[in-house]
C-alpha cells in the first residue's frame, strides 16, 4: 500500500519539504543544544558531578545563584550532574538506536526478500517479542546481571529495539520485491545481495530512518524508566532517569531533583519525535501509512 509512491519519490522534493518545515528547525535546534551540552559537559559543568561539596551542610539545597538547579541529597551540584547525565542518556540512546536500526533493517530486508522459512522464523520471533512489554522483558533479563555496565545496558536496549524496524522494513521489501525495476534487475542477472543493497535497501531506508528517529525518543524514555526502577544506569554515574529516581522519594521537599531532569527528557524526546514526524511527512506527505512505524501505545506501560 503506497510503497510504489515511495519508490518513485523525488529526493529534492523531500529535502524541500524538510527545509520549509518549522518543526525540523525547532527540533534540530533543540537537539543541537543538547548535543553540545553532552559533548562539552566537562567545560560547561560548574562542578565535578561526583563531588560531594559538604555532606552535612550543603545537601538538598534549593536552586540558588551558586547552584542554579540546586544540590542533591549528597550535596552534589544538580546542574553539573544533569549535564553529565545528558552525555550518558544521549549516548546510550543513540548507540542503541544505531545498532538496533542497522540490525532490524538488515533482518527485515533479508526476511522480506528471501521469504519462506527464514521470513516465517523471523516474524514469529518478532511476534513473540511483541507479546511481552519491553520493560518486563528487560527487568527479567537484567535480573541475570548483578551490576550491568552502561555498555551492556546499551546492548540490551538495542536488543529490544529492532522488532518494529524489522517488521516495517520487511513490509517495504515485500512491496518492492516484485516491483518492475527489481524484477528487471534480477532478470538481468544481478545477484541477490546486489539487488538487496542497490535496490531494496535504498527504498526501505526512508521509513527505517523515520522509525529510528522516533525510537531514539522511545529508548531515552525506556532507559529513564529502567533507571527510575533502579536497574538502568547505576549510580553514582548520573543519567536523567537515576537523578529522578534519587528525587522520587523526596517529592515533597527536594522537588528540583525530579522536575529538571524530567524536563530535559521531555524536551529531548519531543524534539526527536517532532523530527521523526517531519521526516515521515516529508517522505510520505499523504500519510498513507498511518502511524504504522511508531508504537502508539508505549508498551513500557
Amino acid at each position: 500500500m503506497g510503497a510504489a509512491s515511495i519508490g518513485h519519490r523525488s529526493d529534492s522534493s523531500v529535502r524541500g519539504r524538510l527545509v520549509s518545515d518549522g518543526r525540523v528547525r525547532l527540533a534540530l535546534g533543540v537537539l543541537g543544544c543538547v548535543a553540545l551540552v553532552a559533548i562539552f559537559a566537562p567545560m560547561l559543568a560548574p562542578y565535578d558531578p561526583r563531588l560531594q561539596l559538604d555532606i552535612s551542610h550543603l545537601q538538598s539545597q534549593p536552586p540558588s545563584f551558586a547552584h542554579p538547579l540546586g544540590t542533591d541529597t549528597f550535596s552534589r551540584d544538580v546542574l553539573s550532574r544533569l549535564m553529565y547525565g545528558t552525555r550518558v542518556s544521549l549516548t546510550v540512546a543513540l548507540v542503541a538506536v544505531f545498532l538496533s536500526a542497522t540490525f532490524g533493517t538488515m533482518l527485515g530486508a533479508i526476511a522480506g526478500y528471501v521469504g519462506g522459512a527464514v521470513d516465517a522464523i523471523v516474524m514469529r520471533v518478532v511476534d513473540a517479542a511483541f507479546s511481552i512489554p519491553a520493560i518486563l522483558l528487560l527487568i527479567v533479563v537484567i535480573a541475570l546481571w548483578g551490576n550491568l555496565s552502561v555498555v551492556t545496558l546499551t546492548l540490551l536496549l538495542a536488543g529490544v529495539g529492532w522488532f518494529t524496524i524489522s517488521r516495517l522494513v520487511r513490509a517495504e521489501t515485500l512491496a518492492i520485491r516484485d516491483a518492475d525495476y527489481v524484477v528487471a534487475a534480477r532478470a538481468l542477472g544481478a545477484s541477490g545481495w546486489r539487488v538487496l543493497t542497490r535496490h531494496v535497501l535504498p527504498n526501505a531506508i526512508g521509513s527505517a530512518v523515520v522509525s529510528a528517529t522516533l525510537s531514539v525518543g522511545n529508548i531515552i524514555l525506556l532507559e529513564a524508566g529502567l533507571s527510575y526502577l533502579g536497574i538502568g544506569v547505576r549510580p553514582p554515574t548520573p543519567s536523567w532517569g537515576n537523578i529522578i529516581e534519587e528525587g522520587s522519594t523526596r517529592l515533597s521537599d527536594v522537588w528540583w531533583l525530579t522536575l529538571f531532569p524530567g524536563l530535559a527528557i521531555l524536551v529531548t524526546v519531543f524534539a526527536c519525535n517532532a523530527l521523526g514526524e517531519a521526516l515521515r511527512d516529508a517522505l510520505d506527505p499523504r500519510q498513507l501509512l498511518p502511524a504504522h512505524d511508531d508504537a502508539p501505545i508505549r508498551m513500557n506501560g
Binding site: 561526583r50 563531588l51 560531594q52 555532606i55 549528597f74 535480573a143 551490576n147 547505576r234 553514582p236
Partner: peptide, 21 residues
Amino acid sequence: AVLLQEAFRKIGVSATPDVSD
C-alpha cells in the same frame, strides 16, 4: 555507599557501589 565512595576517592581509592536486588 555514595558517601563512602567519595570518601575513599579523596585518599586515592576507587570504590564502585554494586547495588543489586
